[in-house]
Simulated assay, not measured.
Amino acid sequence: MADKLSGEERALLEAELEHLRQEHRDLDTAIEALLHLGVIDQLQVQRLKKRKLLLKDRLSFIEDQLTPDIIA
């Protein structure tokens, strides 16, 4: 798939990838902050963790799109 991407498509995917990575890091920070506050909102933490997992899945999908297929 990666060899079929135009330069513009590759650039868009790389930009989205960087945006998602930043959002993933921000969620890590938010979860840590909630856990260190002492007053833990379990529902909020669960929502953030679920969002983080969705981001990870999307990150993996985009990385697969950008990585050329290698036949072993």
Rank of each mutant, 00 (worst) to 15 (best):
T29A: 12
Q44F: 03
H19Q: 15
L55S: 06
Q44P: 01
L13Q: 07
E16G: 12
R21F: 00
L13E: 10
L5S: 11
H24Q: 12
L13R: 10
S60T: 01
L27V: 00
D64I: 00
E9R: 15
D41N: 15
D64Q: 08
I40S: 05
A11E: 15
M1N: 09
R21H: 00
I31L: 04
T67F: 11
Q22A: 14
A2E: 06
L5P: 07
L35R: 11
D69Q: 11
D57S: 07
I70L: 08
L34K: 08
E8N: 11
K52P: 03
L12E: 15
E14Y: 05
K56Q: 10
G38R: 01
E16C: 09
Q44A: 13
D26T: 04
A33K: 07
I40G: 02
S6K: 07
I40C: 03
R58G: 07
L66Y: 11
Q46K: 11
L66H: 13
V45M: 03
L35F: 05
I62P: 10
I71G: 09
L43G: 04
D28R: 05
L12D: 15
R51C: 01
A15C: 05
L66M: 11
K4Q: 13
I31M: 03
T29Y: 05
D28H: 05
L59N: 02
L35E: 15
S6H: 07
L66D: 13
E8Q: 12
L17N: 06
L34G: 12
E14S: 09
E8D: 14
V45Q: 03
F61V: 06
P68W: 04
D26H: 06
A11C: 07
F61W: 09
Q44S: 11
L5K: 10
A33C: 00
L35D: 11
I31N: 02
D57E: 12
R47M: 13
D26W: 03
E18P: 00
L48N: 04
D26V: 02
L59H: 04
D57N: 07
H19P: 00
I40F: 04
K56L: 05
L13V: 05
L53M: 13
K4M: 08
R58I: 03
E23Q: 12
E63D: 10
T29Q: 11
L27P: 00
L55R: 07
T67R: 15
A2Q: 04
E63N: 05
L27D: 01
I62V: 14
L27E: 00
Q42N: 14
L17M: 08
L20N: 12
A30Y: 01
A72R: 10
A30S: 04
K52E: 14
I31V: 09
T29K: 08
I70W: 08
L53Q: 15
V39S: 15
K52T: 05
Q44K: 14
Q22I: 04
E9V: 10
F61Y: 13
E16A: 12
K50G: 10
K50R: 14
R51D: 12
D69E: 14
K4C: 01
T29R: 07
Q44T: 08
P68K: 12
R21K: 14
R21N: 06
Q46A: 14
I40T: 07
E16I: 06
A15G: 13
I40R: 08
E23A: 12
L55K: 05
D57Y: 03
